[in-house]
């Protein structure tokens, strides 16, 4: 899984949102700055500043709305904005030691190994 545009840079999420929105706007006028901002409950001026990296990334709720509106994975967009979704945070905080250890161990693993960890061993016919 390659995460598009993944970077530590704070403006990256704004740039990514702009690229995705403008690509969609080429095919569908409803992805104009004004209409997307309207559907996501923010002003066009604010969205414009987010896209240009002039302000800090929006809060979780707004980022998730933007991601959904643009057909992107909310977790990926949140990560680009330096955030972790509230449900994931709750999962980690419920068992902080276990998940901290698990995540550290998985840090250098390729995606295929990570997927193997979370999969059940399938039973068959015997």
């Amino acid at each position: 899984m390659k995460h598009p545009g993944r970077t530590e840079e704070p403006a990256a999420v704004g740039r990514y949102i702009r690229e995705r929105r403008e690509a969609l706007a080429l095919e569908d006028a409803s992805f104009s700055l004004r209409q997307v901002a309207g559907r996501c409950g923010i002003t066009p001026a604010y969205l414009s500043r987010v896209e240009r990296g002039e302000v800090a990334p929006p809060g979780e709720e707004t980022l998730v709305r933007l991601a959904r509106d643009l057909g992107e994975d909310p977790d990926v967009v949140l990560a680009m904005g330096g955030k972790i979704s509230a449900d994931l945070r709750a999962v980690i905080l419920a068992r902080p030691q276990l998940f901290a250890e698990l995540i550290r161990q998985m840090k250098k693993m390729p995606d295929s190994s990570v997927l193997r960890i979370v999969r059940d061993v399938r039973d068959g016919n015997w």
Partner: peptide, 20 residues
Amino acid sequence: RHAEDYSTRLPTHTASRGGV
């Protein structure tokens, strides 16, 4: 390793048993 990940390169009866 998961048997099902290599089902095309294992005998059919082996793959059908699942497991590792």
